[in-house]
Design a protein around this nucleic acid. Structure first.
Lengths: 253, 253
DNA sequence: CGTATGATTGAAGAGTGTCAACTGCAGTGG
DNA sequence: CCACTGCAGTTGACACTCTTCAATCATACG
């Protein structure tokens, strides 16, 4: 077991009325292999889809819910390296043999399509479009990882937290194009925000308190409300034009 | 122009007798599309293969030399997000439209195969193996990015530098399986090590000095010598078994 | 030789981490 | 119904790592 502060988990899902109900993009739209339903699983919040050291030969196509991909250090500290939203493909291993070097934990109740590697590769050989979608998915993951690297490597604690919130808000809203409200359910604890930004939860708390007092964002009870988008963008240290582009709706984010 | 401390660059290549001469794996082995030679280019050390904001529709298949992939902040600070070695595929954009959010700078003189996106996608549709190689390449990039994230997010300055040196040494040696010497040419300045680890070059210097005095590694004049691999692994905070595996030869790293 | 780049060292200060205590909320069981 | 428990959040004091600013040294190149 990992030394964590706790394990109580959000159980309901992200959307205004739960993900399935008011969804602009139905679950099927996130499926990588259209007619392959037999691998569908539901996993409850807090459980791992797979853990570090896992040697299974499958890939996980996230259909609904939030997932955190993480690594562990020897002393039990954790780094969240990716937040996955519906449409994500998880568990693609860099080498065919060898165990997973990351784990994936459900942040909400989750539904995934578990695709055996054999099925995936044979499908990919048959239908090049599937393979190309894999490439796009991985390219996006890489690009996001590079953003995180920049954030953690070069920004202040304030900047990192602001950047993360902005990113998650943006990606979330891209899935719910109808919603113009600057509010969302963000199924994270402050400790998880710390694990993603390379900070301690104590310091995350101070940063969030400060930004709340300054009227920039409010994050309470796993709900995020953006009070002043412009200042958030400024604190995040993002080019305003780029950020403005993010706040437009984009498919496949 | 970017505010850098300098621009003097290493001109000769990485290998003991230059990459081409004593190569265990010839350049052709790193080519993604076997019979496509018409895009070959040579780029001299210090130049960018492509810069941030670049809108070209090509992909770069690195055949020889070292490349650093980087991002910039508004104030000119830089983060190196990836070191690319021969065999790497660079410049795959997450969305078809939109400019590159990273740049790629040659650290040594470099030869690349520039593949127009149209050629690549048509080839990928024809030959699924090419697409699968793309997937593997991207999966490796992601995996390395996750390692860096963990390092920068959670390790001390010592740990980050040690981890980076260990990684680069390992990947380098995987390309030169014959060489058992714990010494290599590492075409980086201390500032670039800082840009990769999220530290200032001043502090990188202090860390390197300390590790030299302690007889762990020596890094001078762009040559790296590993004096005590076991202690390096320990300082890097890597599981000794995993690291031992890295120090075996591996293809395609 | 003079100049430019990279490396080295020192001193002082800012930003985060660590340790510790306390609050508030939600579920649980007597 | 209420006390108990466990987890997330909050706050304060202090230590320490790393940055910043500055000056100097070393090496390559014209």
């Amino acid at each position: 077991m990992i030394r964590r502060r706790g394990s109580r988990q959000e159980t309901q899902n992200g959307g205004p009325q739960g993900t399935a109900a008011g969804a602009a993009l139905p679950v099927e739209q996130h499926r990588l292999i259209p007619r392959y339903h037999s691998g569908d699983r539901k996993i409850e919040a807090g459980r791992d889809l797979f853990s570090i050291g896992w040697t299974g030969k499958s890939v996980f196509n996230l259909l609904d819910g939030w997932v955190a991909v993480y690594t562990l250090l020897e002393d039990g500290r954790r780094q969240i390296v990716q937040f996955a939203l519906p449409g994500a493909i998880l568990g693609i291993l860099p080498s065919r043999r060898g165990p997973a070097t990351v784990g994936a934990q459900a942040l909400t109740d989750v539904t995934v399509s578990v695709i055996p590697a054999s099925v995936l590769t044979s499908q990919a050989r048959t239908d090049p479009e599937i393979c190309l979608r894999l490439v796009r998915s991985l390219a996006r993951d890489c690009s996001l990882a590079f953003d995180h690297l920049t954030s953690i490597g070069r920004r202040s604690a304030r900047g990192r937290v602001a950047h993360l919130l902005l990113e998650l808000f943006t990606r979330y809203r891209a899935q719910w194009p109808g919603n113009r409200i600057e509010e969302m359910s963000l199924p994270l604890t402050q400790e998880q925000i710390g694990d993603a930004t390379g900070l301690t939860f104590v310091h995350v708390n101070r940063v969030l308190s400060a930004m709340r007092k300054e009227g920039i964002v409010q994050f309470h009870y796993r709900r995020l409300r953006i009070l002043d988008p412009d200042r958030l963008i400024e604190v995040a240290g993002v080019d305003p034009e780029t950020a403005a582009g993010w706040l437009e709706r984009r498919p496949w984010t």
